[in-house]
Amino acid sequence: MSLKAIHILFIIASTALCFGFAAWAFWTGSHEEPANRLNLGMGIASAVLGVALVVYGRYFLKKLKDVSYL
């Protein structure tokens, strides 16, 4: 497995973490009284980063389309 392949795996795991963390932050932030603004902010930032990683992943695949996965 080449660096390209493990990087794609890493980006998938990071994207899953970003969306998972966003869900955690929204859930914990909104279940407190008053709402935890820091958690809500981190949730929004994490969701945005998750989308950015998806865009980056597509760019990366295009850029290294000639490099082997092995």
Partner: peptide
């Protein structure tokens, strides 16, 4: 450079699991 990058990705993947 590729081999060092593979090691680095492994280290980062471990953190991706450790953090949550």
């Amino acid at each position: 450079v590729e081999v060092s990058g593979l090691f680095w990705h492994f280290v980062d993947l471990v953190w991706i699991f450790l953090f949550p």
